[in-house]
């Protein structure tokens, strides 16, 4: 079996990251050099972060994240870059996801309605029996 490696997400190249000057660059100036982030902090002008990970797909096994690069650009309250942090997969925590789901309150189409709901095509095998 050959494993298929796939890349997801994006982090800026090292040169681009080095061009970010702590204490000078602001949200606006970064937009052009480093590009919009993969995600943002939760507060209005929260920090920026980029995530890039390599996934290994191997046969029937669930795709496995084998490497993750995370870059966080911290801003102070005036929107000026205060720090650029880099960390990898080892800093992440394995989290057991809660299986609770907020009930959407609207029930779907009944089981039988769906089973016999979409009808229409007659297949050729009806004529020849094999």
């Amino acid at each position: 079996c050959t494993a298929v490696i796939r890349k997801h997400g994006y982090i800026p190249t090292d040169e681009e990251l080095d061009s970010v000057i702590v204490g000078v660059d602001t949200v606006e100036t970064l937009e052009s050099t480093v590009g919009s982030p993969s995600g943002r902090g939760i507060l209005k002008d929260g920090d920026w972060f980029y995530v890039e990970s390599l996934w290994k797909n191997y046969g029937y096994r669930e795709p496995k994240e084998i490497d993750r690069q995370v870059v966080a650009i911290r801003f102070d309250d005036k929107g000026v870059v205060s720090n650029v942090e880099r960390f990898g997969i080892e800093d992440g925590q394995v989290v057991a996801l809660s299986r609770r789901v907020t009930d959407s309150g609207i029930s779907g189409v009944g089981f039988l309605a769906q089973m016999f709901g979409s009808f229409g095509n007659l297949t050729g095998s009806a004529l020849t029996g094999n």
């Binding site: 902090g41 939760i42 507060l43 800093d91 992440g92 996801l97 809660s98 907020t102």
Partner: peptide, 25 residues
């Protein structure tokens, strides 16, 4: 009614990436 769960999922996701302060926020 989904905002509470969305906040909790953010706690899970930020923790998984290692952003502990964001998770706490």
């Amino acid at each position: 009614s989904h905002t509470p769960e969305a906040l909790m999922r953010l706690v899970e996701s930020y923790l998984a990436l290692g952003f502990v302060e964001e998770a706490q926020t």
